[in-house]
């Protein structure tokens, strides 16, 4: 065995290891782009797309059978909600008409005209054993996506691009402690920071911290992005308040937030490639 450590083979292995350490250090330095990683991702992407679609197809077919009772109960419940919603839609339509008139009067622009979107992105793979639900999408820098671009669904905020290669990007979700989001309540302007930890991420919820003790935040309030960090555009819906409690210190409140986008179940997202105020943080001003 000793001869091996003086052999050519061992020297080759040492060279390979040294090369690998070099690549790893480069990856650490250039954390936003990872060429070696993207080569492997590129090779496997078509197969991942195929296997993901097969898995989704099988899951959907099986869920019809396995969840029939649950679906039936849900159906009844949803019918009740639908009836309630019809009533709300009439009110909503009235308000919308009124709102449209007001917009025309004061000459406001359409909602978010400053946004530039990527083409719709399919989720091609999930990160194995990641407690925070990060995933890979099938669009990258070739589609105008760059690191720190916000990721949304048509309903609400999902996360942020943390790695972008030519045709693929990795998205870290708002369920990760690495993505704190400045937020406020749309009803009463109560501000706070939406963040998460492993325990909450497992349940698919997050928390809004540093809420003023005197604020009148209620369950059901809608929480949106404040846009102060320059990472997220203002007024994108994050989620709704589920529960509020006072911190152990007694100095502030914390609210449990249910993200509006079902992050663990989504299959396609959009990336906002540019918006007014991108990269301009409140602190910098």
């Amino acid at each position: 065995m000793r001869d091996f450590f003086f052999s050519k083979k061992f020297k080759i292995i040492l060279c390979v290891l040294a090369f690998l350490v070099g690549i790893t250090l480069y990856t650490v330095k250039e954390s936003s782009s990872d060429p070696a990683n993207s080569v492997i991702s590129k090779i496997f992407a078509p197969f991942q797309k195929l296997s993901t679609s097969i898995k989704n197809g099988v899951e959907n077919s099986l869920s019809v059978i396995t969840n029939s009772k649950q679906n039936y109960d849900e159906n009844i419940e949803l019918r009740k909600k639908l009836d309630e919603l019809y009533v709300q839609i009439i009110d909503y339509q009235k308000l919308k008409n009124e709102n449209d008139q007001l917009r025309r009067v004061i000459g406001l622009k359409e909602d978010f005209p400053d946004f530039a979107f990527s083409p719709p992105c399919q989720i091609i793979s999930k990160t194995a054993n990641d407690p925070f639900g990060s995933f890979v999408i099938d669009k990258g820098t070739a589609d105008g996506i760059s690191v720190y671009d916000p990721v949304i669904t048509d309903t609400g905020l999902v996360g942020i691009v943390t790695k972008a290669s030519t045709t693929y990007s990795r998205v870290t979700t708002i369920l990760s402690p690495e993505v704190p989001v400045g937020a406020y309540c749309i009803r009463n302007n109560t501000t706070g920071i939406v963040e998460c930890d492993a325990e909450l991420a497992a349940e698919g919820i997050c928390r809004m911290k540093y809420i003023e003790k005197d604020s009148d935040l209620e369950a059901g309030d809608i929480i949106v992005t404040s846009g102060n960090s320059g990472l997220f555009p203002k007024d994108r819906i994050i989620g709704t308040v589920e529960e509020i409690y006072i911190e152990e210190s007694g100095l502030s409140k914390t609210a449990i937030i249910k993200p509006i986008a079902d992050i663990k179940e989504i299959q396609s997202v959009f990336v906002i490639t540019s918006f007014n105020g991108q990269g301009e943080s409140y602190e910098e001003e």
Partner: peptide, 29 residues
């Protein structure tokens, strides 16, 4: 064969790194 073993270890490790979203080269090394 030690050399084959090392190279296949490298390949498998890098695949693990990509699949698990870890620092590229961590499991590979």
């Amino acid at each position: 064969n030690e050399l084959t073993a090392a190279f296949m270890g490298l390949l498998c490790g890098l695949l693990t790194d990509v699949a698990c979203g870890k620092l590229f080269g961590f499991n590979g090394f």
